[in-house]
């Protein structure tokens, strides 16, 4: 079944059907989540209304790691099975992951100024997240640097898998080192430490953002498949013109 789904033609057909539904559901959940954030969820007893920034910052941080894991698993698909859809998935995930990492860093900084008194601190969580953004930018640059898609995919796969070492560092930095950034408050062994009145809108926004990312990933993969068809046909046309001239 997976092999059947991994066929580019089959993927184009299935993703074309799924995309409007995923995109529509994403928009609905983001709208519902933001309504709850602004009109239902209470202000925090310490942070006041500034806690509203967390409803963007936390999902963006999760998605930064999520899309890196999508890239890393696709990189394995490229290197082990040499599957063209894995190449396409890697390439489509990179700008989405980079964008959510940027949102995470900017919103974190804008929350930090009124709460910590500073926009930036070189603590382990913040620094490892900045490294994550730099890795994403390096991957995007490498995709642009190598024209031949299969060679580019193999080179990017190696960089992606090497960079994957940063994922657990980001996740566990708050446990391994003494950081200004607070420890995890949702995904904990002893359960979330956030009150339900804040946890529910946070999770709704997070699912909405995730579906937005998934829709963008599907759309990016579809476009990349078309780009490869255009490239193949352009080469065929050039070969035909060369043959005619000869």
């Amino acid at each position: 079944m997976i092999r059947e789904l991994a066929n580019p033609t089959r993927f184009m057909s299935l993703s074309g059907t799924l995309l409007p539904w995923v995109g529509g559901l994403a928009a609905l959940l983001v709208a519902a989540g933001l309504y709850m954030v602004w009109f239902v969820a209470p202000a925090d007893y310490q942070q006041g209304e500034t806690v509203k920034i967390m409803y963007l910052h936390v999902p963006a941080a999760w998605l930064s790691l999520f899309f890196y894991m999508v890239m890393a698993s696709s990189a394995l698909g490229t290197l082990v099975w040499r599957h063209p859809l894995a190449d396409v998935s890697q390439k489509a995930a990179a700008p989405i992951g980079a964008a959510f990492t940027l949102i995470c860093l900017v919103t974190g900084s804008l929350w930090g100024k009124p709460m910590w008194g500073t926009y930036w601190q070189w603590d382990a969580r913040l620094t490892s997240m900045l490294v994550m953004l730099l890795i994403y930018l390096g991957i995007l640059a490498l995709w642009r640097a190598i024209e031949e898609p299969n060679r580019a995919a193999r080179a990017v796969s190696i960089l992606t898998l090497v960079g994957a070492v940063n994922v657990p560092i980001v996740k566990f930095s708050v446990d391994w080192w003494n950081t200004l950034h607070q420890p995890a408050s949702v995904f904990r062994i002893d359960g979330p430490t956030i009150h339900t009145s804040m946890l529910v809108p946070l999770l709704i926004v997070a699912v909405g953002f995730t579906l937005t990312g998934v829709a963008l990933h599907l759309a990016g993969m579809r476009t990349e498949i078309l780009r490869r068809r255009v490239r193949t046909l352009t080469i065929l046309e050039a070969e035909r013109l060369d043959a005619q001239a000869a």
């Binding site: 500034t50 509203k52 963007l56 963006a60």
Partner: peptide, 9 residues
């Protein structure tokens, strides 16, 4: 800071 965060996002 709240408004700027939402606008950037």
């Amino acid at each position: 800071f709240i408004a700027f965060s939402y606008i950037v996002t």
